[in-house]
Amino acid sequence: MYFLYFDPGLGAMIIQTIIAAVAGVVLFSKNLMHKIKVFLGIAKAHKDDVFDDIDVKDSDSENK
């Protein structure tokens, strides 16, 4: 059940299928390019980064 206390936007709901498809292609091609670069040895090493990956580390979340 959702509480409709703000308008999610009808267009925004419908469009998500299209965006997801585009996102899928983008993700796939980026991954592929990265793999090719790694294979050719031209992928950049990860520099100091203050932001981590999207995934919450399993080791932390599993012992809930």
Binding site: L10, M13, I14, Q16, T17, A21, A23, V26, L27, K30
Partner: peptide
Amino acid sequence: EAKAAKLSKKGQFNIIESLYN
């Protein structure tokens, strides 16, 4: 119509991950 709009979970993961990257 908003209720009729459908998106698989995989699709939603794609949106979120592509925005994140």
